[in-house]
Write a protein that binds this DNA or RNA. Structure first.
Lengths: 148, 148
DNA sequence: ATTTATGCAAAACTTTTGCATGGGA
DNA sequence: TCCCATGCAAAAGTTTTGCATAAAT
């Protein structure tokens, strides 16, 4: 079903082996297409391929992060990250700090800034994560009621 | 020396008590003015006021995150967050995924997008975190040499 | 006076490591 | 064949909890 992932290409190109462990973790991340905690990755990998060990899952998450394939973000807890696939090298969302609900959006208009930073700092930019936080419509109502 | 923090005002306004634990954690965060891990916060709080317990430090970090005073971010490990003060409600940096060095910058030009999102989603936006990642100038050299 | 928040210390998790072995290239 | 990456299981950390008590308002 799934087309051969461009991420498998990234792995190969960077000289890493396409092992069962890495491919299974990648599959889980791609099927999720959203934010997922390490605990959930662990559980789903276990379900798909019980032969894969915990340690390899963490090693894969670390590697994918380094390669810019995923990015850890903090949504539900200020302590436990959730990982998100960096589709096309970027990701954007708005988080409600009250209920932890989040909303994703696409256009960020950061192309000019990206080019500018590359030129100024000499950094080869691979992607970005843009996160807005605040209080969502429903929670705003809650806050107002509490103040009344 | 330090002027009375506007963050102390936020705490008060939100109805939270100004306790030793919270004020000490806030002091550490303000003195740092950068990225700091929970372990470092713990150590510095211990140095300033040994009477403050570990648990209260974590509780304060969680609370400050909820209030938008700080924000957890990923820098050095895909697992441990570092907390950063959201000065004026926003923060921006570029991280090198190779050496973990990071560069902060100020102007992001996100005012229009912020207004747009508030209108579209009905969210009361308090701030944002913008993170670029890639390979810094020095690490780019390293990569080239490896490929030669 | 009232609570809210705390400190303590143990419990509960999560993540990392070291090393012999298996599986990709 | 070669050696990178793995699985295992124990160790090392980190965070959370439950509860009696202290300290803000």
């Amino acid at each position: 079903m799934t087309a051969i992932s461009p991420r498998i290409e990234s792995l190969k190109r960077a000289g890493y082996r396409l092992t069962q462990a890495r491919l299974t973790v990648l599959q889980v991340l791609e099927e999720e297409r959203g934010h997922i905690t390490s605990a959930d990755v662990l559980a789903k990998v276990e379900g798909i391929n019980p032969a894969v060990g915990r340690a390899s899952v963490f090693r894969a998450l670390e590697l994918f992060t380094q390669l810019g394939i995923i990015r850890p973000t903090y949504i539900s807890s200020s302590v436990t990250p959730t990982y998100v696939l960096m589709q096309g090298g970027h990701h954007h969302h708005v988080i409600c700090t009250e209920c932890k609900r989040f909303f994703e959006f696409d256009n960020c208009g950061l192309e000019a800034l990206t080019a500018n930073l590359q030129a100024t700092l000499g950094v080869q930019i691979k992607g970005h994560l843009l996160e807005f936080y605040g209080v969502c419509a429903e929670c705003c109502v809650g806050v107002e009621e509490r103040q009344t």
